[in-house]
């Protein structure tokens, strides 16, 4: 299988996870979106040299993974793929900030390593929470939540179209790439010129497809306004989930729970 095939199945897999039936999946998408945002803001608001204070926040992704039946492997793999940029920027901290911050049983730890570790922890928490949001919420659900949150309708609608056609166009691209790979050997046939031709074919076909879709839209009474049926009931569990989660974030953010536990157990 080519990289493309693998990548294609990975995205499809993440999308399939979103249609499971668990407690987490059944939560209101808007609530999940807001809770995730609150989580991310709480995490990134920790100061540069903080590590232990953020650890209780791992409870949230771990809870979602286990209650939502999400394979840990999938999330870890994705984290690996996107980590290079953050690691690249972060790794300069230990190089540039070498003053000793802690000395632990004779080992001196510089501020740079602490702030680097802090960046890594923030990265793990924020990225996994975003991935878990899509893995537990159908994308249309997220779009309708955005609509509810007063994001302009045209943005929401073309986002719905975008999601709908990602999979269709990926399949089309997959067929084209397979055809290319079957007739290209080694690096030949994969340069910019042939790439442009392949993608050009895909682009023209996409534009033609959008014309056919427009015909289909028109023939179903489209008059320039897009109407959506929004079923946006908040159930009791949604409110409980949001309250508990956000209260926990506030407590974890304002009190260093880790330190407290450490003191209790070390005295």
């Amino acid at each position: 299988m080519s990289d493309f095939d693998t990548e294609f199945f990975n995205i499809g897999y993440l999308d399939t996870l979103a249609y499971k039936e668990t407690f987490v999946h059944r939560l209101n998408p808007g609530i999940k979106l807001i809770v995730t945002l609150a989580f991310i803001i709480s995490v990134v608001s920790f100061p540069k040299y903080e590590i232990k204070g953020m650890l209780p926040f791992f409870l949230f992704p771990v809870f979602i993974i286990s209650a939502g039946d999400i394979p840990l492997r999938v999330i870890l793999k994705k984290l690996m793929v996107v980590s290079p940029f953050v690691l690249f920027v972060g790794i300069f901290n230990p190089l540039l900030d070498t003053r000793t911050m802690y000395s632990l049983y004779g080992v001196e730890i510089s501020g740079g390593w602490i702030s680097f570790a802090s960046i890594v922890v923030k990265f793990l928490l924020t990225v996994s929470s975003a991935l878990l949001l899509v893995a537990t919420t159908s994308f249309p659900g997220i779009c309708f939540a955005l609509d509810r949150l007063k994001v302009p309708r045209i943005f929401v609608v073309q986002l719905l179209f975008l999601y709908r056609y990602i999979f269709v166009l990926l399949e089309e691209a997959l067929r084209i790439v397979r055809a290319r790979n079957m007739r290209s050997f080694g690096k030949k046939g994969r340069g910019i010129r042939s790439f442009t031709n392949i993608v050009g074919v895909l682009l023209v076909r996409s534009i033609e497809r959008s014309e056919r879709i427009y015909q289909a839209i028109c023939s179903r009474g489209f008059d320039g306004r897009i109407r959506l049926i929004k079923d946006f009931r908040l159930r009791f569990t949604d409110i409980v989930f949001a309250t508990v989660a956000i209260a926990a974030f506030i407590i974890f953010r304002s009190y260093d729970v880790t330190e407290m536990l450490g003191r209790v157990f070390s005295t």
């Binding site: 493309f4 166009l169 790439v177 790439f195 497809r209």
Partner: peptide
């Protein structure tokens, strides 16, 4: 919407 989806598909093709 389609061109947005197209960008994804195109990003998956390496050169």
């Amino acid at each position: 919407g389609i061109l947005g989806a197209f960008i994804f598909a195109a990003q998956m093709i390496n050169f």
